[in-house]
Write a protein that binds this DNA or RNA. Structure first.
Lengths: 211, 211
DNA sequence: CTAGGATTTGTCCAATCGGTCAAAATTCTA
DNA sequence: TAGAATTTTGACCGATTGGACAAATCCTAG
């Protein structure tokens, strides 16, 4: 008998392992070539298996990409979720910037995968943006606004502040080539993330000190 | 006689017009689908001509993309070139931020084309980054550093400051879908660029006031 | 140790892609 | 307005792509 396609969910040990292996390989390929630029053969080779074997675990290229993207968003939003209304405003913001820079440093492929999707108009996660991202950002924006009203944080538009933090931190993952080219060989070592973190923190937090 | 391919340079009126028409169509297609995601047929259709006709004006898909990218870089660097060592530091920086936000608003496709190229590791303009971009940035970084030493500008790493300005402004073009989704229908009108400009200026310039 | 399911792969297919070519249509020029 | 040069296109080609299928191999429970 032909085996039922295991695409519904991981059952056996092998299925869990292979599915994970495929996602890792796909992340590598999708993040550097984009969805259409990536081929199933490339992903299969990166995962060390044949193309039909890969398609045994995921029904289509679409499904791999979609799985990757949906799984990513949670990880991606975690740093913002951690921003707590109870903490000290400046400390909380500093922590948020830190966590975002660390993600750019430790998960650049995830960042580029996400950037690729956004550049193309979010055809596959568009709905998630309004259903998950927007509510979370609105909630945290409210926290920021309360801090500002309480005089514990300089006044600025909370949404655009969050955009600015996203943009500056993710820049070091998405535009890595450019950053490295501009900094030159001597300053483009791994320390660039530490330098970036300090600069971004100083820029934003200096301007946001209550006055 | 068979006509010589006009790919060497624009000669007749028709050639100039059609070449421009093709570049416009190609910008639209490349910026939303990336290089590999775009097809010659799509570009040809967007330009209102047949595929062989398009290939009469440009020898290959590569050549169109490359032309677009090289032509773009000059436009793209213009705002930074305008930053003058003679002017008032804070006014100069404010002007630079303004110009960059205006470019994100008026030329979002160009921004996305560039972002796409960067995301993929700048395979086609990598050399231009070190030959043109780096020297320019280094020159302007020196200007910023002089201002800082003279006490006319708060101290921070000039390179990372420039990165931050790039990131925050281009974010509104490259991540437009996300920005719109988060701001919601009511705040996502054209005014969002004006709001963004004010927020970014306030954030950066407040923190950079000499103290 | 063996039967039945799970896993793997070689082979194939239709669609799409970038690009060619020769012929047709149009435009320019003398 | 005739003839030459330029511009346009239909038809075609080889390569690549996403995916299907059935046969072969592997694993594991009884």
């Amino acid at each position: 008998m032909t085996a039922e396609a295991p695409a519904t969910g991981p059952n056996t040990r092998i299925q869990r392992e292979k599915r994970e292996l495929i996602l890792g390989a796909a992340l590598e390929v999708f993040s550097t070539h984009g969805f259409r630029g990536a081929t199933i053969d490339q992903i299969a080779e990166a995962a060390g298996m044949s193309k039909p074997n890969l398609l045994y675990y995921y029904r289509s290229k679409e499904e791999i990409h979609s799985t990757l993207l949906h799984r990513l968003l949670d990880t991606w939003l975690a740093p913002l979720r951690e921003l707590s209304a109870e903490g000290d405003p400046l400390k909380e913001l500093r922590g948020y910037i830190r966590r975002k820079i660390e993600m750019a440093r430790d998960f650049p492929r995830e960042s580029r995968l996400f950037a690729n999707e956004m550049l193309q108009g979010a055809p596959r996660v568009g709905e998630m943006l309004t259903r998950e991202l927007k509510p979370l950002v609105d909630e945290k924006a409210k926290v920021l606004r309360q801090w500002m009203r309480a005089g514990k944080l300089g006044k600025t538009d909370p949404h655009h502040l969050i955009f600015a933090i996203w943009a500056t931190t993710q820049h070091y993952a998405d535009f890595d080539v450019q950053v490295r080219a501009v900094l030159g060989l001597d300053r483009a070592g791994e320390g660039r993330f530490e330098d970036a973190a300090r600069s971004i923190e100083a820029l934003f937090l200096e301007g946001l000190r209550p006055r």
